[in-house]
Design a protein around this nucleic acid. Structure first.
Lengths: 140, 140
DNA sequence: TATTGTTATACTCTATAACTATA
DNA sequence: TATAGTTATAGAGTATAACAATA
């Protein structure tokens, strides 16, 4: 199930279109990950490794438990997409970073996950600015 | 991890705001379900039972395997939120429907999941119409 | 023979609790 | 004593394959 789907909403309100957007977005994310033999969670972690960083920092950003990150990073390491190295400044800590293949796979994932790009590209520049404004306001 | 998160996007573009929206939406959905001791998938199934319907129909709508629906419905049945009854017109099939408690819990879920309502309510009527137009266009 | 749904199985995500090593 | 990360474990989502009952 690619969902979280929302409650059954009337078909043409802003709320309903919002739901459709989220649903499509989530499915596209899952699908792009699958094309690269990744799960959504793995693609997500890989995408956050722009620079070398600690496990705790990842857990905090992703809002999940540290033990979860341990497992996800272990899987990514097992398939050669990331490495863990000791943190010279704190011997308890470990720094995760992408391997060369990890970089390549992440790049291909970003290409495959075209949902946001494609959606935005259907709008004119002025419309994109409007949309940004409206969504920011809606998010409070 | 409440995510699917998107690739690291520039901070203020339409694409970035889109990502933020999806992320917030998904987390809010998860959180609302949790308040009712449901998982997101369970809340999702429960929400699709406006009327009595077959397992296969659910699987198709949710885009997942039938065996998955079997398990989810079994859990909901085990906690008394849905029942399965034989389909009089096809003895292979079974019809799922909410119990009274299932209705009540679903109603409380929809109240708890205020994300879409709240977001839309921050916009004027004209802005809501604009947003609907822009999102529909962006979705193609 | 095809279809509806279930069961068995396996993999992944996720959290909690207990643990190790270090600060 | 507190913190970074791991391990063990358990519950849940998900799919595949094999199966039963019915069409």
């Amino acid at each position: 199930m690619a969902l979280p789907s929302g409650p059954t909403a009337p078909s043409s309100t802003a709320e309903a279109v919002l739901f459709e957007l989220v649903d499509d977005y989530d499915r596209a994310y899952e699908s792009a990950a699958e094309q690269l033999s990744l799960t959504a969670a793995q693609a997500c972690v890989l995408g956050r490794l722009h620079e070398r960083r600690g496990m705790g920092s990842l857990a905090e950003e992703l809002g999940c438990d540290a033990s979860n990150i341990t497992q996800l990073v272990s899987r990514l390491e097992a398939v050669g997409l990331v490495t863990r190295e000791p943190d010279p400044s704190d011997r308890r800590a470990r720094l995760v970073k992408r391997t060369r293949r990890g970089h390549a796979v992440n790049r291909r994932f970003e290409e495959a996950f075209a949902f946001g790009r494609t959606a935005v590209s259907r709008l004119t520049d002025a419309e994109q600015q409007q949309l940004t404004f409206l969504l920011k306001k809606a998010l409070g």
